[in-house]
């Protein structure tokens, strides 16, 4: 029997920087980190109306990419399944299942397509 001492006494807040694809300038708080189920995402609304999909993987690493699925135009990437292929983390769009690399935003099934990536941290 092992005991896990993981239940955090102080909850951490997850923050996104609205500066897509570049170094963070400012941070917008999104939610408590515990709201994220490992392997699933949530959608967050930025002050200017952009939507960001935020994910946490099994190891606790965080990722944030644009929520819009470029293949269908629907704001749904946050609702896709997270996985890894050759060590790269990805999310598969829930509509037509194209996969997007969570670190770079590149579509793994179509070289010409990519979505924006946002800096994300937990504080």
């Amino acid at each position: 029997m092992t005991t896990t001492l993981s239940s955090p006494a102080t909850t951490k807040t997850l923050e996104i920087s609205p500066a897509a694809d570049s170094a963070p300038d400012s941070w917008v708080p999104v939610c408590e980190e515990s709201r994220l189920t490992p392997g699933r995402g949530v959608a967050a609304l930025l002050p200017d109306g952009r939507q960001v999909a935020v994910f946490r993987d099994r190891t606790g690493r965080l990722y944030a990419i644009d929520n819009r699925d470029p293949f269908t135009g629907a704001q749904v990437l946050s609702r896709g399944l997270v996985g890894s292929a050759d060590g790269r983390p990805f999310v598969a769009s829930p509509l037509l299942k194209q996969r997007f690399d969570l670190e770079t935003g590149r579509c793994l099934d179509d070289d010409e397509v990519a979505v924006a990536v946002y800096p994300v941290r937990s504080k």
Binding site: G39, R40, G80, P94, L95
Partner: peptide, 18 residues
């Protein structure tokens, strides 16, 4: 929860506009 397809995850079928 993390294993289910989107439809199962929200207990409803996703349509083309989300």
């Amino acid at each position: 929860a993390s294993l289910q397809d989107t439809n199962d995850h929200f207990l409803a079928n996703m349509q083309r506009n989300g």
